[in-house]
Amino acid sequence: MMIAVLASSMSMLGSTLLPISGPMAAVNWHSVLFLLFAAVACACAVAVVLADNVVRMAFYLVLSLASTAGLFFLAGAEFVGAMQLMIYVGGTLVLLVFGVMLTAQAPFVAIKTSSSDRVLAGMVGAALLAVLLQAAFRVEPWRRPAVAAEAAPAATPIGMALLGVRVDEPAAGVPAAAVRSGYLLPFEIVSIHLLVVLVGAAYLARAKRRRTPRAIDVAASSVGPVVEARQAARSSASALVSGGGR
């Protein structure tokens, strides 16, 4: 875990070090940190597949998604990285761990899969990975090393885009005259969607009328809506935040 601490503190350094990655820099910190985060993300993702214990799977998933957030920070998508940490890791996965703990009784903690299934899945997975990797390497410009670029902080343009106004520079290769749409309508749709999900999840997980209500029902009905409400509030609040920015 000390490595994780160091990595996260140094990732912050790395993002500022990026502009000096010329021939002068012997070690490119951006690449080093990328390797570190990528290794953690990939290793934990594989560990999720290999682990049998469902609580450990959840733990590996947390690590994997957190280091993916680190990758987002490195790629300059700070807002997406923070959203990933807040909604995904802090919200969705807490919810998931909650679900795990509500159902983690001895027989279900580790449900084994037969080894023939494992072999089959491994083969299919390897084939899929081969195809994807080939696709990643096929396109020549993607393989070229990055040009050191300076970018504007993206939080404000994202907020403006969600309000339907585009203030960012058009991407390279896209003609400036191309219509660049805002995201006001999708944003509203997602808001309504979250509201519907909130009601739906509360309905599905509600406490049924039994003569003696089971503890698990009570817990589920009290937890589900709460977490969901938090996510809904977060998403709309964060959009408001970035929208009001500068």
Partner: peptide, 27 residues
Amino acid sequence: LSSPVGVAHYLVVGAILFTAGVVCMAL
């Protein structure tokens, strides 16, 4: 360690995460 990472590096990570997820769903 010395050259900057490009899009392809990220795509590799994405591919591994994706594959792990698919296998996880199936398994």
